[in-house]
Every structure is written in structure tokens, then in C-alpha cells.
Design a protein around this nucleic acid. Structure first.
Lengths: 140, 140
DNA sequence: CTTAATGCAAAACCTTTGCATTGGC
DNA sequence: GCCAATGCAAAGGTTTTGCATTAAG
């Protein structure tokens, strides 16, 4: 995955800086859960303390444009969250207490819904389902 | 609805100020679509120009605590959106271009999903489905 | 009269942007 | 050496907070 991203960046004429590589590695390391720009920053700071949040944002935006990351909104007042794209279509199960997120590989979107959207005159672009609950650990 | 809210506020020992009443009326007026604090402010300013956004936020927070409003996140970089609570369970259809929101009174959550969540050890508290597309007006 | 609510201003967030400097290529 | 990317600082937008003042009860 790392090589694939670096390759595409080169093909696009982007430069592979130390910072950029560190950021991409950090993003891939937290992949699996949805992360904020700040999450990435915390990881990256340990390796390159001078690296600023602005650089994180710029790189996240770049990766988003290239289709490697997808913005998936955030809950409450936390900032935007992102996840690594390219995974099969899926939804999220979020623990309301600890924020832990799991992916659900099942999609309940059915014809009824698709028709409803069409009737209202919308072109459906995407959708997201968020299941919120309390995980086993937090319940104890 | 207005009377119900005012009654509960009094019962709680809150004071009914002109500003508060104007805000609640504005909130109820935009009910049906999801609104931001700014949306409310624009309506309210016409009636009480001195009323500040801070007062809107304070009152929205209060109404949220009393259970009359629910925060339902926002799309992209727009601020939080709210809606009047107590309505039947429903989901949302959002136009990605203009932000307009419609309610969908159909819920596709099925047994497969409920079982999946249980298997993972979560108590399902709530869920939200967001259908995103481009509305007829914006497509032209 | 008491004290909750407001108005104002300032701060706290998250995110973006301008510009000089650095460093890939 | 060229120009993309970074670092820094500052600005934008949303939301919160402190504090003196106003007004509901």
C-alpha cells in the first residue's frame, strides 16, 4: 500500500519528502479506525517534532484528491475524520464512550430506499450508516 | 410544541426572556430541515438585531440538554446541524452542493445488522443513515 | 432583590492560506 | 537550479467563555 501510494505520487510529479513519507506511514498505521488530522499529528510528532499540523492537513487533502483517503465527517465537536479508501463498501460501528470504531461489511441499502431518493429528484452519490453503541469493554 | 417547551423551562427554573422565546420560535419555524446555529441567527436577527450568536449557542445547548433538540453533525466544513427531537425515527437525504436536507421516513436496519452488532459485543444505542446526492435544482 | 440570561469582547478550537525558506529531483 | 513542499505565522470560521450589565421572577 505504501509503495502504491508513493508510486502514484511520483507519477503525478509530487515529491517524496521525509515528512510526506512519515505522514503516509502514520496514516496507514492508524488505518482500520477512522482518524482525525490530530491523530496523525500525534503519531508523527514522535518521529519529526517540527512537523506541523498544517503539513498534515495539506497531505491529507492531497491523499484525498488522489483517492487514497476519504473524508467521512466527524461526531459532535471533534474535527473531520478520514479513513483509508479503496476498501470494499462498508459502514461503521462506533462506541459512544471510547470512540473505538469497527467496520461493518454489510450494507442494508435496498430498492425501497433507492426509489425513494429517485422520486425526490436526487442523484444518489454516496451514503453512510453509523451504528452507535457501547462496546463490551466500556460496559463493564 | 412552543408551550410544551416553555412549560418545561419554567418547571426547571429557567427564565423566559424575549430572546429565548424568539429563538425557540425560530427553531420551531425551521424544524423539518436540519439547521445550524447560524440559520437560527439569521431568522432571529430580523426581529432582535442585538441578539448575538453566543446567545443562540447557549439556548441551543439548553434545548439539547432538555431533549428538545438533537445534534446530528454536519457535512464537510459547515458547522453542527440540529433538528427538533421527538419526531418519529427517520433518516436524512442531503444535497452535497447546497446542503438542503430532507427527511426519509424509512429505515432499512434489519436483523442481519442487529445480529452483527450483538456478535461484536455492542449494545446498539442509536444509528443514523445519511444519503448524499445532488438535488434536482443543483443539477441544472 | 436575586440571580439567570444577555451582550460584548476575547479566547479556544479546527482548518486554511500567504510567504519566505528548504530540499527533492 | 527549479519549483514543490515545508515551517511559520497569521487569518478564517465555528463554538465557547469571562465578566459586567440587564431584566425575569
Amino acid at each position: 500500500m505504501l509503495q502504491e501510494i508513493l508510486g502514484e505520487l511520483k507519477r503525478r510529479g509530487c515529491r517524496i519528502t521525509e515528512q510526506r513519507q512519515t505522514i503516509i506511514e502514520a496514516v496507514l498505521a492508524v488505518a482500520g479506525s477512522r482518524f482525525t488530522a490530530y491523530d496523525v499529528w500525534e503519531r508523527v510528532k514522535a518521529i519529526q517534532p517540527e512537523l506541523g499540523l498544517d503539513t498534515i492537513y495539506r497531505n491529507i487533502k492531497l491523499l484525498e484528491e488522489l483517492g487514497f483517503l476519504a473524508s467521512i465527517g466527524g461526531v459532535g465537536k471533534e474535527g473531520n475524520r478520514y479513513e483509508v479508501a479503496g476498501r470494499d463498501h462498508h459502514h461503521h460501528l462506533v462506541c459512544l464512550r471510547c470512540g473505538k470504531t469497527e467496520c461493518i461489511d454489510y450494507c442494508p441499502i435496498d430498492d425501497v430506499l433507492v426509489n425513494l431518493v429517485q422520486e425526490r429528484g436526487y442523484d444518489l452519490v454516496r451514503h453512510q450508516l453509523e451504528l452507535m453503541g457501547i462496546c463490551r469493554t466500556c460496559r463493564q
